[in-house]
Every structure is written in C-alpha cells, then in structure tokens.
Design a protein around this nucleic acid. Structure first.
Length: 318
DNA sequence: GCGCAGGTATTGA
DNA sequence: TCAATACCTGCG
C-alpha cells in the first residue's frame, strides 16, 4: 500500500525519539512487528521519494492463512508516522518566526515517530535519561531480544516488546540471577537480567515501573485524560521526571502540547529567545508550552534536531 | 584514560 | 522552591 504524505522516513527513524529504538533495516525497508487485531504483523516500510511511503507486510509463518484487515494496517501506519499531521501548514507557522524558520530546511519531512506500544515508550524514555541515543537504543533492542515475543516471518524472526508482567518478573542484575538459579553457573555468565542490557542504575526503575503498571496503573486510562492530569499521573513513576514524563506523553500518547525540555532544548531556547541567559528547565518547558501551544511537541522535535546537527550549539555549549 | 550522554532521586538550606 | 551531588556504562 502507498501513502502520499511528505515524510523523511530515515530522518524520522534516526531522530532519537524515545517512543522506541529505530526499526530494523532489511531489504531496503524499515521493519518491525505491530499487533493488529491480536495478531503480530511484520510491517516493511520504505520510500523512494519524500512525498510517498510504501508499506508491505508479512503474516507470521504459523498464521499464513488468516485474513487481515488492510484498513487496520493503514490506520496504524498513519498513526505511528503521524501522517495526518499537516507539515506544510506547520512550515508556514515556523516561517512566521524568524528564530524557527531556519529549522525547516534542516528537518524537512521529519515527523513524530509514535509508539507501537505505550509501555515500550515508557521504558525507552526512562532508559534515555542521562544516556546517549546510541546506548539507550541498544538497550531497548536487547530487552526485546531477551524477553520479547519472538515471531517467525518469511523475512526472519522479529521480537515485540515484552509486557509489563514479563519484565516485572525478570532478574534485576547478575547477582540476583546467580542466587535465584542456585549458583549453577559463573556469575559472569549470568546475562538473563535487566542490567546486562546496559541499563545501569535504571534497571531497578524499569522493574518497579513494570510492577506498578501490572498491579496498579492502567495505561489505557492515560490516553483518555487531559494533558495535565496525565502528566501528574506519569510523574509518579520511579525514574520519571519532568523531561521523561513529557517524552512519554508526546511520543507514547501523542500529546502534542508537551514540550520535553532537556539540555539541548534549553541551550537552543536560551540562545534563540533569551539572549543566552541561563534559564531553568522548568522555565524552558513553560515557555515552550505557552508560546507554541499545540505545536509545542513538533517545535521541540525540530529544535532538538536543529540544535544537535546544525553546529550552532558548538559555540554556545554551556 | 577520561569525560560525556536528550535526567532523576536525594539531601540540605 | 532550589542548588548541589551521585549515579551505570560504552563510546570517542
């Protein structure tokens, strides 16, 4: 199937959005598993030019005979890549602000990359804190391979993200695993645990959050809340501060009024709007939400990429 | 070898 | 409310 929307697929995949790690590249396509009507489907997305997206899909080898509603796949692709968002209208909005206008050419075709699964986004966002994009994306990939549901497709084996219930019961570190299995192998060989995914001190956060989601918090309720209520709710989770909460709401649930404020956003907002004055992250967040309204999430996405890649920041670091 | 990476939790004024 | 500090770990 084909989608006629302006999008830079590679940029969107590689832009470091914490909804998930980038999809696996195979046969010139970005591939990942998405659950459609209770069935894991392998989506294969590629593009030749910036105005079209081509999507193919595969059924599990074990379920080749089932019939799948292509409309449901279409809807999911549209949702994940936010294809209904009017980029041209957004660009004319950016053009009206001389500070934002330069970001357009830098980010043309960049769209939100929304979560396949809000829980995956939650774990990804927590893992991204005080971490590098290269490292947290690898951690997430490892979690999928260790505990995710493996499904065989004609193109190979792919893993979906594990459920909260599964992660809740995973060993936290090598020592816990070592003790639990009765010390039957060397401590160094115990890799069936969260910390061995390179999560560092975030491992206990992931476990606790999995437990809370399983036992107390209903994730599907979040999407029916308004932004402020959802923000306060998400903020209760361990390892979730203001920045991570906004990432979860923006990339995981599509709250576009969120303005995740991190060190990069602070640097560039300070540079563009506050004459390089040192301002607090909470001031940056409030400024962004106030000034950009429902475009806050997209402006943040564009400024982040602009700040990191333009070279503009090298001269004003710190 | 050392500093940094899309912050958060904790502590003390 | 706010500043100061420790924190896993892999890559440059």
């Amino acid at each position: 199937m084909q989608f006629n929307s302006q999008i830079n697929l590679k940029l969107t995949q590689k832009s470091g959005q914490t909804s998930q790690s980038p999809w696996q590249v195979k046969d010139n396509s970005y591939c990942d598993v998405v659950e459609i009507a209770k069935t894991p489907i392998l989506l294969k997305v590629h593009q030749e030019d910036i105005d079209t997206l081509n999507v193919g899909y595969e059924l599990p080898i074990a379920n080749q005979d089932i019939s799948i509603d292509e409309k449901a796949i279409e809807n999911e692709i549209t949702r994940i890549f936010d294809l209904n968002f009017d980029l041209d209208k957004f660009y004319s909005y950016l053009s009206e602000d001389s500070k934002l206008e330069p970001a357009i050419d830098f980010c043309r075709g960049l769209r939100l990359f929304l979560a396949k699964d809000p829980f995956e986004c939650m774990v990804s966002s927590i893992t991204s804190a005080n971490n590098s994009i290269a490292r947290w994306t690898k951690s997430i990939a490892k979690i999928k391979e260790k505990w995710g549901l493996a499904t065989e497709f004609p193109s190979g084996t792919f893993y979906s993200f594990p459920s909260p219930t599964t992660l809740m019961n995973v060993y936290e570190d090598d020592f816990e695993e070592y003790e639990a299995i009765g010390r039957i192998m060397e401590l160094e060989c115990c890799t069936n645990n969260l910390k061995s995914c390179g999560l560092g001190y975030r491992a206990p956060y992931i476990k606790k959050v999995s437990e809370i989601i399983t036992l107390e918090m209903n994730l599907s309720n979040i999407s029916s809340m308004d932004y402020e209520e959802a923000y306060d709710e998400i903020l209760k989770l361990p390892g979730v501060g203001p920045k991570v909460a906004d990432c979860i709401l923006l990339y995981g649930y599509g709250f576009k009024e969120a303005f995740p404020s991190d060190v990069w956003i602070k640097r560039i907002v300070s540079h563009l709007y506050f004459d390089n004055k040192d301002i607090s992250l909470s001031e940056v967040r409030e400024f962004g939400m106030e000034r950009f309204g429902n475009y806050a999430g997209y402006v943040q996405l564009y400024l982040f990429h602009y700040a990191r890649k333009s070279g503009l920041m090298n001269k004003i670091k710190k």
